[in-house]
Every structure is written in C-alpha cells, then in structure tokens.
Design a protein around this nucleic acid. Structure first.
Lengths: 233, 233
DNA sequence: AAGGGTTTCAAACAACTGTTTGAGACATGA
DNA sequence: TCATGTCTCAAACAGTTGTTTGAAACCCTT
C-alpha cells in the first residue's frame, strides 16, 4: 500500500516541523507543543515515536548527517582514486568537504537549508549530549579528511592545519547562517535563495577558505614571550 | 567606605556567575536559580537589581561590549591618524578589530575569556531581543571599520568584502570557542590558557584571516558559466 | 467478522520556569 | 534615637516544561 519510505506520516511530519522550529528558535526554546502543533500531531506522538525530546533531536540530525557525510566520503574516494599515488590537491579536498555542505544549504524546498543552518549553530551548542553525538557522528569523515589534508600539505605542521580546519569550519558556519546574520555586517539582506546567489556564495567561500588555508605560515610564536605588538605606527 | 565601582556586591556577583553559566549552558538553559545559587544570592535579587532575565542578559553584554568596542574604535583612530590621508593597511585594520577580541579572550582570570566565548556563540543566537541588541550595540564600530576597509581595499567589490568580513567573524568565533570545540577536529585538547598558546592562536588566526581577506577574487559568478567574463583585478 | 498489533488522543502528572509579594534586616543621616 | 531609603529573604504565584497514562480509533490479516 504505502511507500516503504513512508514509514509513518506523523513521524516525518514531526521531524520536518522540528527541524524548522529548532532552527528558528533553538533547541532549548522549542517546545514539544510547538512542534506537534505545527506537525498537526498529538503531544504524546513525540514520545511514542522517538522516546524523548533528546532522541528526537538525535534522529533529526542523524537522518541528514549520515547522508551528508556519505556524500563527502564518496567524493573523497573519487578524488583519491583519480589521483592514484599522488596526494589530492588541497583545493579539491576543500571543495569535497565544504562543497557538499554548501550545496545542501542551497536546497530550500527539501529543508536542507534549514538543517544546515541548524547544524552550524549546533556546532557550538553547549549541551553535552549534542556535543558527544556530533563528535561520534563526525569521527570517521573527519579522520579521512584529516589524513587526506596531511598528505596534501606536508609542509604545514599538523597542529597548524588543525586550527585552520577549525577556522574554516567557523567561516562556513557563518556562511550558511547567511542572510539573517549578515545583516549585522551589511545592512542589505542578501538573497541566498536564488540559484545565482548560491553559486556566488559557493565561489566566495571557496576563495576565502583556500586563501586562508594556503596563507603564509605565521612566524613561530613559541619564541617570543610578549604579545605581538603593532609593527608600524 | 566601599569603592565607587563596587555599587552593589550582589549585583556584580550575579553578573559574574551569570556570565560563566550562560557560557557553560547557554542562555535558555541557564535558570535564575542556577545563577543566584552560584552567586550566593536570593532568587529575587535578579529582578530587584536588573528587572528581568532579559535585562540581566543585556546588562551583562553591555558592560563588556562597550569596553571592547571602545578599544576597537580607539585603535582605529590611532591607525587613521598615523596614516594621514593614506588608507590604513588592511592587515592593521584586521588586527585592530580582531586583535582586541583575541586579547580579551586571553583574559582567563577576569572572565574575559568566558565572555568572548559566550559572545561568539550568541552571534548566531536566534532569540530576537538578543539579535536586535547586538545589532544596535555593534552599529557604530561596524560602520567605522567597514568604511576603513572600503578605503583600504578599493579594488574589492563592497558586497564581496562584506561576505569576507562575515567569514572572518565566523573564523574568529570558532577560534575563541577554542579548545572545547576543536576536539571535534583534533583529538588533543589544546591548552588555550597559557600565554604562549594565546600568542600562537593570535598569530594563527591573523595569518588565516589575512590570507582569506586577500585571496584572489572568485570568477564573477553573477554571469553564468557561459561567459567567463574577466574581472578587472 | 473477529482478532491483534499499531497509532492517536485528551487528560493528567510532577517538576520547573521567571516573576511577585510583603515582611524583615541593614545602613545612613538628622 | 528615630526615620528613611536600600537591600535581602522565604514563600508563593501563575504558567510552562517533558513525560506518562489508559482508553479509543485505526489498519491489516485471518
């Protein structure tokens, strides 16, 4: 009768509604009553289908995150196979990791955009169970990409690269939070929804990330004891 | 008797406790009872001294943010005076804006570090009153720095720069959230508390930011891929 | 038609939220 | 000493939170 994908209509309506509301109000500020109201379901449905609010959150992240990271790994596989024994070019690794995310953030109808913005904010979420869940969910893909980067950038100290990777994640996080947050910087709301703007954002972020990744290494700061002062007045 | 600065002991104890707890658990998840318990004050003290939880939050951000932005403006004044009619070099503007923040984040004893990490997370906070408050609080300093950047980077389209500024904020945000978040990327917890590590972080972030800011402009994506129209670099 | 497993529902649960109250403690100046 | 304004306190407030309950409705196979 029903599609196999459509296990439970209520279940996915709850997930969709929760995704939208979590991104709009945050995890804590979104109540189960708000979610079930928007999903046109009973309050008890959440605990029936998922067990608890925490479990709902984890399931919500899982269904998108596994797909996202599978895409990333597949892309990396492709690149490594094509490169043979040679290291993959850093730019291509960056595009594999961040490009998939940006492309997902471009999907406005399917909710991918909502999710990416939610995920970006959640990265710095203080709740312990979220932290642990994300760390576990990311473990494999991060290990693979780190290894690829190490191989591609033998001249960059590993610790230095880890920080730069961290910075890149921050830049991407703000990139996908996009139009809402940028009004703090620019007065005009930018239209992220159109395809053209998405392509522009992709190009902009990539330029910025590669520029940062390939920037000259800082002077080794272990030597100097005092804070770096202005060089010229 | 008491210092003039020490208007009310309870008042500042509450602010300090709130700052620490907000950063540890987030704005929503931190309750007034948690705050007053840590501050060894009565629950009613918050509403007596501040009026409401929202007012407490605003006051908490105000007391540090005004100082932070005053420092930034003073630094920019100094740079512009020294440069005369010439535009200030981009690197110096970046250091003025982000350097102050990183230095504040290095202050572990005075709570500056806690605050900067809290501020970084709050940037993408969905709560409307926080958004409006931050936008207002940042308006002047952002206008001044944007103008300085525009003058210093006449060849970079304004919209392009605004995005790069946005990306830079994201990188800094993740930089100061630091050791807790980086464990997602690197397995080793980095020691951000020592002076040496702070200097290293400063140098690392600056290299990355300048690298991203001065990266080659992306090929103009406004036109479709049909015509790879060359930009006037 | 009957049965059994799955899903929905209104209602209630205890615990917790920010806020208010009114009485009391405290300090200061006349 | 008394009066006055500032501050603290235990207690209660009304409202909301996530979760549970037990009965009803539904669906599908027998």
């Amino acid at each position: 009768m029903a599609d196999i994908t459509e296990i439970s209509d209520t279940r996915s309506r709850i997930l969709d509604a929760a995704e939208r509301l979590f991104m709009e109000h945050g995890l804590e500020a979104t109540t189960l009553r708000m979610i079930t109201a928007e999903a046109q379901a009973n309050i008890a449905a959440v605990n029936y289908h998922f067990g608890s609010k925490e479990a709902l959150i984890e399931e919500l992240f899982r269904r998108r995150l596994t797909w996202l990271n599978e895409q990333r790994l597949a892309e990396l596989d492709r690149l490594e196979k094509a490169a043979g024994d040679e290291p993959v070019k850093p730019r291509l690794i960056v595009e594999a990791f961040f490009g998939v995310a940006i492309r997902m953030a471009a999907d406005t109808e399917g909710g991918g955009r909502n999710f990416m913005r939610l995920l970006s904010r959640t990265y710095t979420e203080p709740a312990a169970f979220v932290k642990n869940f994300l760390a576990e969910e990311y473990a494999e893909v991060l290990a693979r990409f780190k290894a690829a980067f190490f191989k591609a950038l033998p001249d960059v100290p590993k610790e230095e690269f880890l920080w730069r990777f961290h910075f890149m994640l921050g830049a991407m996080s703000y990139a996908v939070s996009g139009a809402d947050a940028i009004k703090v910087v620019g007065e005009d709301k930018l239209d992220l929804d159109s395809d053209r703007e998405t392509d522009a954002l992709y190009a902009r972020l990539m330029s910025f990330l590669i520029g940062g990744l390939r920037a000259p290494l800082p002077e080794t700061p272990a030597k100097q004891a005092k804070k770096p002062q202005k060089k010229a007045a």
